[in-house]
């Protein structure tokens, strides 16, 4: 046990890991991000690059600020200092989508599923006929078999979250943020939703940032896993997941997948014990 700990300490990363995985023009660049919450420093001069058209999973110890990070990027909570740019543009100039963990509280129960999905288009001033067309196109594209006339509370949890995801996708966002989107679903539904999300990702090529507390899910979906340290959060590691897509059930028993997951778990354990 002592030996293992020593070994782990020896393999500790260099003092300042690079903010990005390298290669390709970054889509989101974060520089000098600072955030304090009730006197506790969560982020201090944090730098990060999110590559274009890639899927990044954010994973880290409890309370390290995973959700806080994507909430600051998506503009849901203000940062204290620092700069977040999308292709050099500000958030206001960028179309984003956001999927909440709690679909029950994120959807509008007074609107039908269809009206929920078209709502962001309505906000953008898109006409009624065009809205119908766009939603129908998205539904056909995703091959969703849900009766969209129904209200969200008449649907299963998975269906509701699917409606949430469609609501986020209908505006063709440049970036899609997902905050633990499947953690309230059972394992069977979780696996199904992973497949759906992967398909959407492969087909649209939208840059996606997923916060997850399930390492298997995080690695399975990601091109890069962003491993955060305990607060104040630093990048503990940002490994590439070079597994071919589409990934499937066999992927999870693939030796490369197991090894990558093992590596991430090791980094995670090291950060938890630190």
């Amino acid at each position: 046990m002592v030996a293992t700990t020593l070994q782990l300490l020896e393999t500790a990363p260099p003092a300042s890991p690079s903010p990005g995985p390298g290669g390709g023009r970054p889509h989101i660049t974060i520089r000098g991000l600072c955030k304090q919450f009730q006197g506790v420093t969560i982020y201090d001069k944090f730098d990060l690059d999110v590559p274009r058209g890639k899927f990044v999973s954010v994973f880290g110890p409890n309370g390290c600020g995973k959700s806080t990070l994507i909430n600051m990027i998506a503009g849901l909570i203000p940062s204290d200092a620092g700069e977040i740019l999308f292709d050099g543009k500000t958030l206001a100039q960028t179309k984003i989508g956001y999927v909440f963990q709690n679909y029950r509280e994120a959807l509008f129960p007074w609107l039908s599923a269809f009206a929920n999905i078209e709502y962001p288009l309505k906000l953008m001033g898109v006409g009624k006929a065009e809205r119908r067309e766009k939603v129908q196109a998205l539904v056909d594209h995703m091959g969703v078999k849900i009766d969209l006339v129904r209200y969200p509370y008449e649907m299963s949890g998975g269906q509701q979250q699917l409606v949430s995801i469609m609501r986020a996708l209908v505006v063709d966002p440049e970036v899609l943020f997902l905050d633990e989107p499947f953690s309230a679903l059972d394992y069977e539904m979780n696996l199904f939703m992973r497949e759906q999300l992967q398909r959407i990702f492969v087909e649209t090529g939208t840059t996606m940032v997923l916060v997850s507390h399930d390492l298997e899910e995080a690695v399975y979906l990601a091109d890069h896993v962003l491993l955060l340290s305990r607060r104040p959060a630093r990048i503990a590691d940002y490994p590439l997941i070079p597994l071919a897509r589409p990934r499937n059930d066999q992927t999870m028993s693939d030796p490369d997948f197991v090894a990558l997951k093992g590596h991430c778990l090791e980094i995670f354990q090291r950060e938890v014990r630190r």
């Binding site: 849901l76 509008f108 709502y119 906000l123 505006v171």
Partner: peptide
Amino acid sequence: RKTRILAAKVMGASRWVIMRDVILW
């Protein structure tokens, strides 16, 4: 519900629109 207000906000709704489309309901 905070989440619903945030959901509208992230979709680009103004304060007034959030009031009309979310909080009133």
